[in-house]
C-alpha cells in the first residue's frame, strides 16, 4: 500500500527519521515513531498473525488498539498490539502463530 506523500487538506505527511527494522528476519524500512502496523502496511505486509485453532490469518482491523487482530511478536514479546506500538530502529517483528511465539531463528 502506498504512503500519501501529499494530501489535499493535510499537506505533506510528517514523519520521523527513516529506520530499518526486521520482519520475520527480512530487513524493511519505516519511520521511527509511527505505529508498527503502518510501517508493515507500507511494506505490503497484510498478515500479522494466525489464529490458534483454525490457523486463519488476521491483519489490521480497528487500528486503535481495541480488537487485538494485529498482535505480533515484537522483540521477543508476544501479543503486542502493533497498531498502537511505535516503531523503533532495529525492532525485530515476527508473525505470531496462535498465542505461542514462533521460533526465533538468529
Amino acid at each position: 500500500m502506498s504512503r500519501i506523500s501529499e494530501h489535499p487538506i493535510l499537506g505533506p505527511t510528517e514523519t520521523g527519521p527513516k529506520v530499518t527494522f526486521f520482519m520475520d528476519n527480512q530487513p524493511m524500512s519505516g519511520y521511527a515513531g509511527e505505529p508498527i502496523a503502518v510501517a508493515l502496511k507500507a511494506a505490503g505486509v497484510m498478515i500479522h498473525r494466525y489464529t490458534q485453532k483454525a490457523h486463519e490469518p488476521r491483519g489490521i482491523f480497528c487500528a486503535i488498539g481495541r480488537c487485538t487482530d494485529c498482535v505480533m511478536i515484537v522483540d521477543g514479546i508476544p501479543n503486542v498490539r502493533t497498531c498502537i506500538t511505535p516503531l523503533v530502529a532495529g525492532m525485530k517483528i515476527q508473525t505470531q502463530d496462535g498465542v505461542t511465539p514462533l521460533e526465533v531463528s538468529q
Partner: peptide
C-alpha cells in the same frame, strides 16, 4: 486481512498518511 472498520481507514490515512 483487508476487511477494516471505517474508523481504522480514517486513522491510517488521516493520522498516519498511509492508504
Amino acid at each position: 486481512p483487508g476487511v477494516i472498520g471505517a474508523g481504522a481507514a480514517q486513522t491510517m490515512m488521516n493520522l498516519y498518511g498511509i492508504q
